[in-house]
Every structure is written in C-alpha cells, then in structure tokens.
Design a protein around this nucleic acid. Structure first.
Length: 664
DNA sequence: CTAGGGTTAG
C-alpha cells in the first residue's frame, strides 16, 4: 500500500533506516522504483543486494526492457541463475516490445529446448512477434503449440490470435475466432472494432463501439484516433468531449490523437483548453504529446508557442524535430527551419521532406536542389513525396534537364508507376514544353486521380494543343471514376478559350454548378471573359463581367481590354481602362498588369504615365519576365528592358532566324 | 511476465 501511494525518495529513505535485510521488501522496492521511472536507483538496489531470488532477477530484466535498455537486460538475463518461466517470459515480451521480434523468437526456441513450457502470457508475446514479422508459417507453428499445451480457449491468447490474423489481412479468421470465444473482454471488442476500420468500414466500427458491452480509455482512444486518421477531425473531437464528460481520463495516446485532430481543424482555442489539461496531468514532456502540440500551434500560425512546446519535450525523437521543422516551413520561417534541421541528431525521410516542402511552398527553388543533393549525399533514400516535390520545383522552373535526371533516378528507385510521382512527371514535362513525354507517362499510368487529369489537360492546353486537351477531358468523363473538381474545370475552360470553342466553353461553365455541383470562382469567370473577348463577343463579355456574383479579377478586365484592342472597340476600351485604373489603385500588381496591358495595346504614353505613377506611389512590383534554362543555368528576360547581358546578341540572332524563315 | 490505442511530410 505504502509503495503504491508513497513517494520514492521517502521510501528509499525508510529503507536506509530499516534495520537488516528483507528480500521481499527489497524486491518490492525495486519494482516500485521501476514504476516511478527511477531506473538507476532500481539497478543500484539490485546490484547491492546480498542475496537475490528469481523475482529479483525477473524484475530487473523486465524493468530494463521497459525502458529500452535491451543490451543491459540481456546481460542480466544471461547471468540469471534462476531461469524460470517468468524470467523467460519477461525477456521475450520485452524484446517484442522493443521491436526485436526475431531475437524474441530465438529466445523462445531456446526456452523450449531447455524444457520449459510456455504459459498463456508467453504465448501472447510470441504470437505478437509472429504478427510483427508478418510470418504466417511461424504463426501456424505457434498455433499448433498452443493447441498442444491447451491454451486455445484462453482469453489473452485468443485476443492475440485475432490481432495476428488482422495483421495478415485475414479478417475472416479474425472474425471466426472472435465469434467462437466464450468470453470476450474489452480488448477483444477493441480489436474487432479496429478490424472494421482496417477494411474501410468506419460506420460499422462506430456501431461496434456504441454497442460494446464495456469500454475503457483504449477503446475510446482507438475510435478517436481512427476518426482523426480518416480525416473526420470534427467527429474525433466530439468523441473526445463525450469521453471526458463520461468521466474517462484520457491517456497519452488519446491526447495525441485529439491534438492531431485539432491541428487539422486549426482550432487554437480548443487546443489551448486541451493543452491546459495536459499540463494539469504533467504530460507535456512526452514525445508523442509534445510533437502533437508543436504541430497544433504551428498549424495555427504560432511558431513561438510551438517552440515552447518543443523545448519542453524531455526526450525528443525524430518526430518532434520533424514537427518543429515542418512548423517553421509552414509559416515561412525557412531560416529557422534549416537551422533546426541541421541540428536533428538522426534525420529520417520525413525530416528532409518537411524542409523541401517548405522551400517549395515559398518558391525557394535553388534551396530545394541544394537540399536534395545533400539528401542524396547523406545516403537518405528519396521517397515518392521527395520526388513529387522536387519535380514540382523543376516544373515551376521549366527545368527539363533536371527533370529528366530526376525521372531517371525515380525509375532506378522503383517509383515509376507511383501516382504522385507520375503526376509530377506529367506536369514537369508539360511545363517544360516536352508534351510528348508528358503524354507518354500519362498514358501508361495504371491509376490516375483528378490531379493527374488536370495536369494533362492543362499541359496540353498551355502548349497549344487545346483540342487534344478537350479530347482528354471527354475521355475523363467517360471513365466516370470521379467527379471533376474546380481546378480541372479551370483547365477545361482554359482549353476551350485557347481553341476558340466558345459555346462549348460556355456549356461546360454552365454545367459546372448544375451537373458537377462545383462553385465557380473568380478565376473561372476570368476564363469565360477571356474566351468571349478573344472571339470578339465583346458586349457579351462586358455584360458577363458586370453580372458576376463575385468581385472580378483585374485579369478579367485585362482580357476584355485586350479584346477591345484586337477588335478595335475604342469606346468600350475607355470604359474598361477606367475600371482597371480603379482596381489598380487597390493593389500594386494591378499597376504592373495595367502597364503591360497598355504596352501590348500600343499606348506607350499611358505606359510611361503608369510607371511614373507607380514610382510616385512607391510601389515596387517587378514586371513580368520569362526565362529559359541552358545547362542547368536559368537565363532571365525582363519585359521592360534588355536586362540580359547578351540580349543584343540574342535579339540579333533572332532577327537572323526570322529572315531565314522568310526566305524559305 | 500479457493481448487492444499514439505524434510529423505528401
């Protein structure tokens, strides 16, 4: 009683005052110290004992294993003069818990050879090891032994067998065992609940949960984490609230799951309340909870609070570091991200990807290639998400050479038919102007999602193959595998606009809400205005833009203005220009756009006027530019001037080529 | 001495 409720120091003090030595009291003290996490004290007590029995040995072995001190535990195990069933079991289960299932199985065989028969506890650990190894045959051997020793109707053993079958995706066997069990406990029910989630039947899992005869914090935790993992964060949080209301005390796993759900909802207020509870229980130093807290605060934009949570984690694992690096990346604190990244003691794949994703989000492309080559040098194997990020950078830079190189690496690493990598490749080749390669990859993709289709349609349209883009869209509609999304429809409208299929475009635009139930946004409207303006249906375009339910983009007016210029409608041009000037007052981009629009319309005086106006207002947005890559080196061409240092040569050559073409 | 639940990127 005293040991369970008392403070370790008081009791250790008592022991010193205790006259003489009592083996039983001493053993109790060792287990108590282990319970309190006082590993060194427990070890010292053990080492100083004048005599030890099998309980002492078992306690120290299992205690060391509980804290992951495998080698020391084995050292004691090998010197144990009383190799009883208990100490064998302690060693085997400890090894399994530390992920050393092969070692555990070897020990189990040794145990059998030494003539000791397993009990139900030993068997549960051994079955778990078979499951971790996903070894069906090994599992069947153990099952034979179970039947032989007569434990096939044991509750714990049956529970373990359910999990073993689930791990091997044999839900039928798992269900059979569950149904045949005479008595079931909360573990059995929780396992079967998880089975329904595994086969994708979350609703059925919820039914099991609601009808379970008995629930504990693990059952709650399972259900909450499953909701969170399958993207239903609201339901996860709801369930958490119910759990607390019903008087269950959430444990670490549960807090970690609910924090993750709150992070995806960016619910900072609720997050702070939960954080309060965690502080009350003193669990904020835990690695699982800590990394979830870091993630929560960073997703809500508070990297400072995130950092405080990070710094208070006692034993940081790689996930903690990754969460913090990802948090900085997310909030455009890329220097902090890199600085922290460099300090990660043992980086994993996600560490690299978190940093790369940050650079991608904020368009720091050079850094991406730098980090990527560091990654390769460090020996870390890029994953499919590494490839999709780095390929995306190549696409943004239209960097064909680098893209091809990556394509080769991806094939070598066996990512050639991964949906994410393939989509990134389709996009990269299309953006770099190599439509043929883009098409080739798209055609042989075994599976496609809406992003793959969008990349292909957009890619074709942008490279001047608008009709083909529309043909691909029609092919998409025939697959009927999923409904198009707004981005896909934007690509379709873009294609219609670029091949003059105005009525078809209008048809698609009108079917967006009616057929596909997609809310059209300002970019879709701009596309339609562009479409109408290009084909000379100017008054229709103007009416369309004025009837828009949302605020039109400046680009919509610009498209109309450009149409006015092409079809020489001076009066409308005046009206539109007026409108653009109004909008341009509001944002700096507007001025640049306006000056570019005027420039292309040939009104140089107005251009000069606009640029002057911008200068006066202190607006410093650079004009548009274009670039091309030669031998991995980008060359930039700005629209205002001949800023490229070989521009006169380039333009000269261009002129020469033009005359050649005319001569032919 | 045991079975069931946990955090990060895309």
């Amino acid at each position: 009683m005293y040991l369970k409720s008392g403070k370790p120091n008081d009791i250790n003090q008592m022991l010193k005052e205790f006259d003489g030595f009592n083996l039983v009291v001493h053993n109790c003290l060792i287990s108590a110290n282990l319970e309190w996490g006082k590993l060194e004290e427990a070890r010292q007590l053990f080492d100083e004992m004048p005599e030890r029995n099998e309980v002492s040995w078992t306690a120290i072995i299992s205690g060391l294993l509980r804290y992951g001190r495998v080698e020391e535990a084995i050292w004691y195990f090998e010197r144990n003069p009383f190799p009883s069933l208990f100490s064998w079991t302690a060693a085997i289960s400890g090894l399994v818990q530390n992920g050393l299932s092969v070692k555990a199985m070897k020990l189990f065989v040794e145990m059998l050879q030494s003539g000791v028969l397993p009990n139900n506890v030993t068997l549960t650990s051994v079955i778990r090891a078979c499951g971790e190894l996903s070894d069906f045959n090994l599992g069947m051997c153990v099952l034979g032994l179970i039947v032989k020793v007569g434990f096939e109707h044991d509750l714990s053993v049956s529970n373990s067998l359910i999990t073993f079958n689930l791990r091997l995706n044999d839900t039928v066997s798992a269900m059979t065992i569950f149904n045949r069990m005479q008595s079931k406990d909360v573990v059995s029910w929780t396992a079967i609940l998880d089975m329904y989630v595994q086969i994708g039947q979350l609703a059925e899992a919820r039914r099991v949960f609601d009808e379970m005869p008995e629930r504990n914090e693990v059952s709650w935790s399972t259900m909450i984490s499953r909701y969170s993992q399958s993207g239903d964060a609201e339901e996860a949080v709801n369930l958490f609230i119910h759990m607390v209301q019903q008087g269950f005390k959430p444990n670490k796993s549960c807090f970690a799951s609910v924090l993750s759900a709150l992070a995806s909802l960016e619910a900072s207020v609720m997050g702070k309340i939960v954080h309060g509870h965690i502080l009350k229980f003193g669990m904020e130093r835990d690695a699982f909870i800590g990394s979830s807290l870091v993630d929560l605060y960073c997703k809500c934009g508070g990297t400072k609070d995130g950092r405080v949570a990070f710094d208070s984690i006692l034993e940081k694992n790689v996930v903690c570091w990754n969460s913090m690096v990802g948090g900085y990346s997310l909030n455009n604190q890329l220097e902090e991200a890199k600085e922290l990244f460099d300090k990660i003691p043992r980086k994993d794949n996600i560490s690299w990807n978190s940093l790369i994703t940050g650079y991608l989000e904020y368009e720091k492309f050079d850094e991406i290639f730098e980090v990527f080559s560091d990654m390769l040098l460090s020996g870390e194997r890029p994953s499919k998400s590494t490839f999709s990020s780095v390929l995306c950078a190549c696409a943004s830079l239209a960097s064909l050479e680098r893209g091809k190189n990556l394509h080769g690496k991806a094939i070598k690493l066996g990512f050639h038919s991964d949906i994410f990598v393939d989509t990134a490749l389709v996009d990269m080749y299309a953006k770099s102007g190599d439509v043929e390669s883009s098409k080739k990859i798209f055609k042989r993709m075994p599976k496609r999602n809406e992003i793959s289709w969008t990349a292909m349609i957009q890619g074709l349209a942008e490279n001047g193959f608008a009709e083909e883009a529309l043909a691909v869209f029609e092919e998409f509609e025939q697959t009927k595998s999923f409904a198009p999304n707004e981005l896909l429809m934007l690509a379709v409208l873009f294609a219609c606009s670029h091949c003059g299929l105005v009525d078809k475009g209008l048809y698609y635009f009108n079917s967006m809400e009616k057929v596909y139930h997609i809310q059209s946004n300002d970019r879709h409207y701009t596309c339609v205005v562009d479409m109408l303006s290009r084909s000379g249906r100017l008054s229709e375009a103007e009416k369309f833009i004025l009837d828009m339910p949302c605020e039109p983009e400046v680009q919509a007016w610009a498209a109309l203005l450009s149409g006015c210029k092409t079809y020489r409608n001076e009066r409308m041009a005046e009206r539109v220009a007026e409108k653009i000037s109004e909008l341009a007052e509001k944002n700096p981009g507007g001025y640049v756009l306006l000056s570019n629009v005027y420039a292309s319309a040939g009104r140089w005086l107005d251009v000069l006027h606009m640029r002057k106006l911008m200068k006066e207002k202190g607006l410093k947005k650079s004009g548009g530019y274009s670039w091309i890559e030669v031998r991995n080196q980008p060359h930039f061409f700005y629209s205002q001037d001949g800023s490229h240092n070989e521009s006169s040569e380039i333009y000269g050559l261009l002129e020469l080529m033009r005359s050649e073409m005319v001569l032919k």
